[in-house]
Design a protein around this nucleic acid. Structure first.
Lengths: 195, 195
DNA sequence: TGGCATGCGGAGTCAGGTTCCGTATTGTTG
DNA sequence: CAACAATACGGAACCTGACTCCGCATGCCA
């Protein structure tokens, strides 16, 4: 099991019923997260999937494992979008800005995810780690390229920037007076050197 | 009882033991918040104060009431600092920047407060409301002055700015790689028009 | 000092998360 | 196909922490 392995997901040789339940759980969790956020009660997810709570814990020992499994595809897509944007954009800064936009879109549409990402609750440690492992290197490349081109301040680390962006997404969509996207734009504007 | 009345605090005519307990609770809560953040267990606060949990709920029906009472002085001080800074600073922008600095200092030294401020937990509704009632008008004045002077973009509301700043302070002090102050600076820089 | 309004303590209730183990299902082997 | 071992399942039981409620204690006033 490699260090970047999170949760069972596509699992190898398991009993047929186990694989079926795992899929039901992923579907149920996705639905529950959509309806009630990533803090949806364990019992509710189990009920939606038509399984007992024990089955959840067997497949996904911590809530983070479940959340990761549910959003894995989208996180991978974001990670892969980085290099692509860098290759196709006019300037590294444009690529960075677009990539951050993508990330913000992802976060603001997942009720409670931004909160979970920043929470110090140990339940979410693995979630935090997964996002960081997967996305910080991508962001670092974009940021470095933009810094090398002299477009942004060279003294801000990708980790810090991503946490800042993640933080700004907390509570987005709960209040029409708060537009996370606009504030992230401000933050990125503050990062820029020669407009 | 005016609309901006929060918690009993200095209370008028109550029994002597009640007033004593209220003070013990404030002291105990302040200590507990310092040690364990504003989410410190109710039972622990009660124990520190040497009272039963019922006594907490009698004096401070919601956690927000207790938090407000504990930090009231500092919030008032921040509110009063606004006009002062505006009067003594070279430019409205400088006053705004200093005031935001003050606010950030306050938040990052209160473990868990920034989190609570943004949480949608109904327990903290009153806290949210109190901060907004008290500080948004102050920030609005600073922001308006800076906008009028052409120093900042005129299209960002104080409410949004303050929530953004509050959000950026979440998790500050938990991780040396994350410096909330620096990111807030970036945000303010992004707000600026003619540097 | 007596009477009673006020306030107190903490056991009890409720809501979630997490564990555990007897039972059921699956897959394999003779 | 039958019988068995391995695997997985369900959900009752348990734990933690917030919040309520009421019989008892305390302070206040006459």
């Amino acid at each position: 099991m490699s260090a970047s392995d999170h949760g069972p997901q596509t699992s190898a040789r398991k009993r047929a019923d186990a694989r079926r339940n795992e899929q039901s759980l992923l579907d149920a969790a996705a639905a529950a997260f959509l309806a009630a956020g990533v803090d949806a009660p364990v019992r509710e997810i189990a009920a939606r999937a038509g399984v007992g709570v024990g089955t959840i814990y067997r497949h996904f020992p911590t809530r983070a494992d479940l959340v990761i499994a549910v959003y894995r595809h989208q996180v991978e897509a974001a990670a892969e979008a980085g290099p692509t944007l860098l290759a196709t954009s006019d300037t590294p800064f444009a690529a960075l800005a677009q990539w951050i936009d993508l990330f913000v879109d992802f976060l603001v549409t997942k009720h409670g995810l931004a909160e979970a990402l920043q929470s110090d609750d140990t339940t979410f440690e693995a979630l935090h780690a997964y996002f960081l492992d997967r996305l910080v290197p991508v962001c670092t490349r974009l940021l470095d390229a933009a810094a090398t081109a002299g477009e942004v301040r060279p003294d801000v680390a990708a980790y810090e920037l991503m946490r800042g962006v993640g933080n700004l997404c907390i509570g987005a969509g709960r209040d029409p007076r708060y537009d996370a996207r606009r504030l992230v734009e401000l933050l990125i504007a503050g990062l820029r050197l020669n407009p």
